[in-house]
């Protein structure tokens, strides 16, 4: 088992897990399965690159502004589009569809922004690759360790801790949990459910942006990178069960690991399997749904 492979798999799984947590959070809190996730990830990816190109320095410093901007996108989506529909008790499918519309709008504007830099500044921005510029931290038994191998898992763990503390120790977090469990009762006890939803969409957006931002250092990509990875994020969050944020994180880790490591192991037996690696998480998703129609969270759910 090569260390490079393992490190790469851990990094990848962490990045996916952060995005899956976003989808799960938004689904549990507002019943919206967020299709706009794809373009939010792309925006996080490109904002990091654009800030890095404009101001220089370490790309990691731009994780924060990039993900906050994407978080604001989430807030806008909720306030302008979803609030009215959620209040009128629109069906899940309607909510999904409308976020798909939001996704197209985000995607269109992102590409216009890309074209702007491409025409006016002649940046090579159509495909972005700053992976080689990621600083090398050290070498363990011949395996190079780049910064993203450390930053991505640490970020994922930090988010896990922060979400845990936020949801179980702060009054705002408890209010959020109450609104997720029973919005009507929460409203009766004086919680402003609407504000909680705004907050949920902000956090959801931040997590999606963060996931995209970390991808900048992990892989090369173009404007549809979110779209390409979207199916994996969806798979991760559904394998995790869509009902607990922890489940979402776990599902993302599982999907990321299985994609990288299973492909790696199977490549000894089946040549050319690398091209089919996207099929592994999706096969996992389908298998999970057939065996546990409510996802893995159904197994560990405490009631």
């Amino acid at each position: 088992m090569s260390i490079v492979m393992l490190l790469s798999a851990i990094t990848y799984a962490s990045i996916l897990a952060i995005g899956c947590a976003s989808i799960t959070l938004l689904y549990t809190s507002t019943r919206v399965f967020n299709f706009a996730h794809a373009s939010m990830v792309s925006w996080g990816f490109y904002l990091t690159f654009i800030f890095y190109n404009l101001f220089g320095g370490s790309p990691y410093t731009y994780m924060v502004p990039a993900s906050i901007i994407v978080g604001l996108f989430g807030v806008l989506t909720y306030l302008l589009v979803l609030r009215k529909l959620i209040r009128s008790k629109a069906s899940e499918i309607t909510l999904m569809m409308v976020t798909l519309g939001v996704d197209f709008v985000f995607f269109g504007f992102l590409n216009i922004l890309i074209d702007y830099f491409w025409y006016n500044y002649k940046w090579s921005i159509k495909t972005v690759n700053i992976v080689p510029r990621d600083p090398l931290l050290g070498v363990i038994s011949g395996a190079p360790i780049t910064a993203v191998n450390v930053v991505a898992p640490l970020t994922a763990i930090a988010i896990l801790m922060a979400l845990h503390v936020f949801l179980s120790r702060t009054s705002l977090g408890m209010a959020m949990r109450a609104s997720i469990e029973n919005p009507v009762l929460a409203a009766i006890t004086g919680i402003n459910v609407d504000k909680i939803y705004v907050l949920a969409w902000f956090i959801g957006g931040v997590l999606a942006g963060l996931s995209g931002s970390l991808l900048t250092m992990y892989t090369q990509g173009y404007s549809a990178i979110g779209l390409d990875y979207a199916v994996l994020y969806f798979a991760g969050s559904i394998v995790g069960g869509l009902y607990s944020i922890l489940g979402g994180l776990l599902g993302g880790v599982l999907v990321g690991f299985s994609e990288r490591l299973l492909t790696y192991y199977l490549s000894f037996y089946i040549s050319g399997i690398y091209a089919f690696r996207f099929a592994i998480p999706l096969a996992m998703l389908i298998a999970t749904l057939i065996i546990y129609p409510k996802g893995l969270a159904g197994l560990v759910e405490r009631r």
């Binding site: 309607t94 519309g101 504007f109």
Partner: peptide, 20 residues
Amino acid sequence: IDPSWLEYIIIGLIIILITL
């Protein structure tokens, strides 16, 4: 601006406005 991006925005807005 490449009009195909505008196509995305138009389709997206149609979906949003119709649903709302």
